[in-house]
Design a protein around this nucleic acid. Structure first.
Lengths: 370, 370
DNA sequence: TTGTACGCGTTATCAT
DNA sequence: ATGATAACGCGTACAA
């Protein structure tokens, strides 16, 4: 038998004396389906059914129940529901770091999509460390997320730490930083093609000695960009030289250092393709300080199309990386799967369009059009 | 009486046929404290106590329990725990938008701090809309977050939509975009002082006709920056003119438009103080395109110290806004409160240090030092 | 030091 | 169409 207290104020037990209501009058017991049922002299089963709009409940009882719920300020208890239903309506997100333009844009897209469908987000950063990534995965698992969206740390070499998810059949969608051999769904752009396009563009602009600045090629994105770069050289009859690949952390400062390296060479390069915009910007600034003209002496292209592209002078040519859409697509895909859309289970990878945005940093000749 | 199934594989009921385990062999029943208790022939109470390291449990039973938990791959069920304890270990975050350098940096700081203390984050964006902010607040409330971290939308004029939290005594900490009259804790910088410093600096550099570009002064940050600007003019014997305040959305494009406005004036301004860096950058670019020299003809200063400051030429003078620390401090404060630290309950506002970083965009004279 | 038993608020399976 | 009741997994008075 359930005994309602009719919202009588009780000196309820209070861990750490928290929370403190603003005043004693405000203290109000949380109302439940029991309260609604009791007020209306019906069973909780009916209330529960009505609240989820079960067609088996008659129109008028439904109305009475909704009104009473409104009146009592009822809100359903997610924990009780999750406890029963074994689902949490929560999506876990693991990313290297949140405070980059690209990543925060992706998150914005994810949040938009997930929020619209009533999913909550739990976000954690791996800080590019496999160890933190493992810890994050465990946290997500312990929080019983319904699914996971992951962008891998740079030196993550295997997916073992997600085995618990795979074994339980909890869907994991990787985006941007992925493992090719994974049999989860990957959402990404064609990095090979993008790099190929960029490099070809530089070649078409008259560059014959192009440096590629990138991060350590452990992660797909850098491996692929390097591959596209090489492929473009080959297809245009230019020889590849190992020394033309500069590996660093892609920061602005390292971009400047790369510029110094470039300028120290006997056969001075006439083109630079950097794997992100920050690094390209740092490089351009340093080149200009050294009296090099961009793009006349050295043409430069970046990757991502961050806002910095439109600030640096000359404005930076870059691959337009659709971060927001990537977030939307990855989240949508995961949610569709969670909603029972079987067709998505067989999807191996989703490729998003990316295009080269040509600006002055690489423009030495009139373009075919526009 | 609890009857364990000894992890026998069951064709368990499966909503939407999900989740799908990778293979039938992997299917494994989630183990609970009942399982541990059953295996060890002890009571769940002891297990429950041991798992939370209750000193009342003997060392050796504890050890046996931990070992068995490990062996069974036990993980505690947060929902059952939350349902019982009425706490969620979840912090809600409501911000205007996540994809700005400043905000994503704040989030990074929050995540770092909260994660270290075992708190999860639920993040939502108001998109600068009061309506969305209200909806977000309700979602957070329904998710029973332990506390809330909020940065208000630009035209949020009152805090009514947080009343449910105030009434229940759920702590709300506002940061950056706050309401002065709130009696919650506010974490912010001294915007008046920062603007005062910046404006004074421009004056010291010889500017006598300074334009202030800012957003609509509905939100504290813009009100205060305007106030500091005015104060500095007054203290230096310069007169304030309404026409020298340009209101826009602080985007890069609007910065360019502001530049056009400035250049159209009969008495051409010789200084610009923009309320963010993006806008300042757009302004500088447009000014330079019009043949104006920065800083010789017009000196420019921004606000935030985003990375763009070190890319734009000349490099942008700006107030260094400690976003990461702000996130850390706000989260730490909230968590301390949730942990029962009474001293924080009386804290009204926390001011973070901010300093003016002088760069070439405003430097017309030798600085006193450095 | 350990065990028993109840309640947290739901949903789901019976029965009526 | 509605009601009674058993889980879901955990925490904790109270008892032993």
């Amino acid at each position: 038998m359930y005994i309602t207290t009719d919202n009588i104020i009780q000196p309820k037990q209070n861990l750490h004396n928290l929370p403190q209501p603003c005043c004693i009058d405000c203290m109000q017991k949380e109302s439940t389906i029991y309260d609604i049922a009791h007020q209306l002299n019906i069973s909780i089963a009916t209330v529960s059914r009505a609240l989820k709009d079960d067609p088996v409940v008659s129109k008028k009882t439904k109305k009475r129940i909704f009104d009473m719920a409104e009146q009592l300020g009822y809100r359903s208890n997610h924990f009780a529901r999750n406890l029963r239903s074994q689902r949490t309506h929560t999506i876990g997100v693991i990313i290297p770091r949140i405070n980059s333009h690209f990543m925060s844009t992706v998150i914005a897209g994810i949040e938009q999509t997930a929020g619209a469908d009533g999913y909550n987000l739990i976000i954690s950063q791996s800080a590019e460390s496999v160890e933190k990534e493992k810890a994050n995965a465990k946290t997500m698992y312990d929080n019983r997320v319904d699914g996971l969206l992951v962008s891998l740390a740079i030196d993550t070499a295997d997916l073992q730490h997600f085995d618990a998810f795979f074994k339980k059949g909890i869907p994991v969608v990787f985006f941007d930083r992925v493992m090719e051999q994974s049999n989860s769904t990957n959402v990404l752009i064609d990095n090979v093609r993008a790099a190929y396009k960029t490099t070809s563009h530089l070649i078409e602009q008259g560059c014959t000695n192009i440096v590629h600045i990138t991060a350590t090629p452990k992660r797909n994105v850098y491996v692929d960009r390097l591959k596209g770069y090489k492929q473009a050289l080959e297809d245009h009859g230019l020889s590849f030289s190992e020394s033309n690949v500069i590996i660093n952390n892609l920061s602005q400062d390292e971009g400047a250092a790369a510029a110094a390296d470039i300028l120290s060479r006997a056969a001075r390069p006439d083109g630079v393709f950097a794997a992100n915009d920050n690094c390209a910007a740092g490089c351009i600034i340093a080149l200009k300080q050294a009296g090099i003209r961009v793009p006349q002496d050295i043409a430069v292209a970046g990757f991502n199309d961050d806002p910095v592209c439109r600030v640096i002078e000359p404005n930076l040519t870059a691959i337009n990386y659709p971060g927001y859409q990537m977030g939307e697509v990855a989240a949508r895909h995961l949610i569709n799967y969670l909603s029972g859309d079987a067709s998505v289970a067989v999807t191996n990878s989703i490729l998003l369009k990316s295009e080269l945005v040509v600006r002055n940093s690489s423009l030495r000749r009139a373009m075919p059009q526009g």
